[in-house]
């Protein structure tokens, strides 16, 4: 009678350990590996988008740290369940014990999670304050949510007209081979390696100004001006999508940020918000065909009557 039961214990323990390892290693390798999009999601991706700002780098670190903990906890519970379900099934353990208290055990499983949470809370708080406390910013942009587009203005550069950023419709986006539901007819232009303060507000419904690669999501609330900041460490185009339900075209008011070199930005501002010819690498096909894009957008998106 004794040996088969010992065998059950061993088999259960071995299986439990295997399940725990497979779960943990699986979660961590799958969860933290994988291709990551820069400035936009990657096809079929299953991880955070790549970081373009120090905030997002920090955010990714905290996410990964928490991810190790929660994968470990999931693996532990899974292993315990596997062990219990094999070792203490009716056949293997016909006579149940009557234990119903163990003060030490109960104290341990109350204290242990507290310690884990402290490990999580400290870096998490650091991230929160880093993200939320604005450093000395060098310039300001204002993002205003409207139903359903974003408009950007530059309080520091009054000669640059307000940018109204409408999404391109599918036909135009496909013609230009640009990502539909991300691309707009006019992006927010900011310089690289610069601390930019973003003021976010809304004209009517709530919206949320979001750029995943920047680690930014800031609600646009009517009557309130929220502020946040970013410092993009590389040039390129970064996309985001409105992240607070705002009505019919909620899915159709993307955010596009074009990050250019400091000189190009200075020239862009000096030239009233248009890139001079020598910065032709920043002049996209879309900008050239801007008239086409604008026409189709205003016809296609139907954003006029429904809200009013």
């Amino acid at each position: 009678m004794k040996s088969p039961r010992n065998n059950t214990t061993i088999i259960a323990a071995v299986l439990a350990v295997i399940v725990a390892l497979v779960t943990f290693i699986g979660l961590v390798t799958v969860g933290l590996g994988g291709e990551r999009g820069m400035g936009m999601p990657t096809d079929g991706g299953y991880f955070l988008q790549a970081a373009a700002t120090p905030v997002m780098e920090n955010l990714t670190t905290v996410h990964n740290m928490v991810f190790y903990w929660i994968s470990g906890i999931t693996a532990l519970v899974m292993a315990l369940m596997v062990f219990i379900m094999i070792r203490f099934r009716e056949k293997a353990n016909p006579v149940p014990s009557k234990t119903s208290h163990n003060v030490l055990l109960e104290v341990v499983w109350t204290i242990a999670p507290v310690l884990v949470l402290l490990f999580i809370a400290v870096p998490s708080m650091q991230l929160l304050y880093f993200q939320d406390k604005l450093p000395e910013t060098e310039m300001t942009v204002k993002a205003v949510g409207n139903t359903w587009n974003w408009s950007y203005s530059y309080p520091d550069a009054e000669n640059v007209e307000e940018i109204i950023s409408n999404p391109l419709d599918k036909a135009t986006a496909d013609t230009l081979d640009l990502p539909y539901l991300f691309v707009t007819d006019a992006a927010l232009v900011v310089p690289v390696d610069t601390n930019v303060k973003v003021l976010v507000t809304s004209l009517n419904n709530m919206h949320s100004w979001t750029v995943p690669s920047f680690g930014i999501k800031m609600d646009a609330v009517p009557g309130i001006i929220n502020e946040t900041w970013f410092r993009v460490t590389r040039e390129g185009t970064f996309y985001g999508q409105c992240s607070e339900i705002c009505g019919i075209k909620h899915y159709f008011m993307p955010i596009e940020v074009q990050v250019v070199s400091k000189e190009a930005y200075a020239a862009w501002v000096a030239n009233d918000g248009v890139f001079p010819a020598q910065y032709k690498q920043y002049i996209t096909e879309k900008t050239v065909k801007g008239s086409l894009a604008l026409n189709t957008t205003s016809m296609g998106s139907g954003q006029s009557a429904a809200q009013k």
């Binding site: 219990i84 379900m85 203490f88 099934r89 009716e90 353990n93 016909p94 006579v95 149940p96 014990s97 234990t99």
Partner: peptide, 8 residues
């Protein structure tokens, strides 16, 4: 469940 006699 630990030490029990579990019926599924």
């Amino acid at each position: 469940m630990w030490g029990g006699s579990i019926r599924f």
